[in-house]
Design a binder for these strands. Structure first.
Lengths: 251, 251
DNA sequence: GCAAATCCGATCGTATACAATTTTTCATCA
DNA sequence: TGATGAAAAATTGTATACGATCGGATTTGC
């Protein structure tokens, strides 16, 4: 009886949960905090904010016309996505992934994304293919117009779109986070001049998708991630001047 | 400290980034917010807080002697880990993972954890084995004393310890999140009476680890996760009393 | 007696104020 | 001139206050 009551209440409470958040970027209810998150998020992904840049609460608040309270919440949310690093009493900064972290992020992508590609291929519908095609077109347009930041951001969006089609919310969330971090990593360590190979891989994926070739898509995606990884310069370089003596002793 | 000043400044900005957060539970600097996060975290993992339970900001604040500001931040942090669900203008609740989400969480674990087990086996050291052994002992102790919540929590800690040994921070972070959610899922959907099989799998893992048998550990871990998954009752059941008529219409 | 509209209490969202800490500035001295 | 240290400025950490919104109890009308 007592159980009945508590049960009935928890049921009421349960309402609205369950499969509540379908592919949301942040587990926050809509509101100003969420808006600012999205704003900063795309700014970072498009490389308009460089890694290491200070994100002062007052400054951000003034820009978006919000008080520190909401800005603070937004920064903490971004910290959970790994895009922002918060140091106590010092504030928030755009994250600077270490070489080590860069390795790990791409290894994780190489583990997760191929699986997602296979799942996506298996459930791919005509409408989905169309959506992906649109992504590719937008990416090309940005590339042609020379807006590299936008192009990179859209390239990431392509990967996320695949995850959404696979309809795996848990993995999709992980991929989102990994791709966001990849953007920072690319900002720091990208060495390759030609970004065209990117599009090539994406087109190959499209082909596999249109043929509902799960294993094929999986394989292509795996190669693609490895290729991206190899496009990074992740050699340990000592700090620009970890010691003055080192810096001025070139041989 | 006699390093040149300009360098010191640029270092200051970078310092604390990079490989900053080594296996941290939350990407927040130490402080009351972090403490409350940990407190609520273990309370949920030990099933002292049931899924669906309301976490009022005022109430939690009073319990831990903190103002709503820090409690709010803690709840939002937990929301990012998926342990708490926040509904706008309604507040925070311990999450109630849907059946769908439960499936996905264990599928994700089956993808990620075996890989981690293999990596861990390959780098396993004597000291690491000892640590794992301690985890097992603690788990047994809790089990014997009948504290199921604690036992379950320690069982999860075992998996996390493996991830830490593998020394893959990115994957480790994901595993942490997945295991936390698994705890909620088990609270909701566990059907099996015997939790002993758990320990059996863990012992089998220990054996593989001690032999540095990477592929073996990978395979055992995969079976283990699948076994856990199969221990859940994830059949769709209609609302306990969506209509009074249904509830009172016996058989 | 029951349904619907309304009112009230509780809780959250946001802004602001103050305290604590860090960073910068600048005067002083070797 | 460069190092040293203290004081000032700026920034974050936390608490509190007020307005907004939601859920439930009461009232009203039929």
């Amino acid at each position: 009886m007592h159980d009945d009551v508590s049960m009935a209440r928890s049921m009421t409470v349960q309402d609205g949960f369950g499969a509540a958040a379908t592919h949301e970027t942040f587990p926050l209810p809509p509101g100003r905090t969420h808006d600012i998150c999205l704003e900063l998020h795309s700014a970072i992904l498009e490389h308009r904010l460089a890694p290491g840049m200070k994100l002062s609460e007052d400054e951000v608040g003034e820009i978006y016309g919000a008080s520190r309270t909401v800005v603070r919440a937004a920064l903490q949310a971004l910290a959970h996505s790994g895009l922002v690093t918060i140091a106590r009493n010092r504030g928030a900064f755009v994250s600077r992934p270490s070489i080590r972290e860069a390795q790990e992020v791409f290894e994780a992508r190489a583990l997760i994304e191929p699986r997602i590609a296979r799942l996506a291929a298996e459930v791919m519908k005509a409408a989905d293919l169309k959506k992906l095609k649109k992504h590719l077109d937008a990416e090309h347009a940005a590339l042609d117009s020379g807006d590299m930041g936008k192009a990179l951001s859209l390239s990431g969006a392509f990967h996320i779109a695949i995850a959404d089609i696979a309809d795996q919310q848990v993995l999709s969330q992980m991929v989102r986070s990994l791709i966001s971090r990849s953007s920072l990593i690319i900002a720091l360590y990208w060495r390759r001049a030609d970004t065209t190979c990117e599009s090539h891989a994406h087109h190959a994926l499209m082909k596999a998708f249109s043929e509902k070739d799960g294993p094929g898509a999986e394989e292509i995606q795996k190669s693609h991630i490895i290729d991206l990884h190899s496009g990074l310069d992740l050699r340990e370089k000592k700090e620009p001047s970890s010691s003055l003596a080192d810096a001025l002793k070139p041989a």
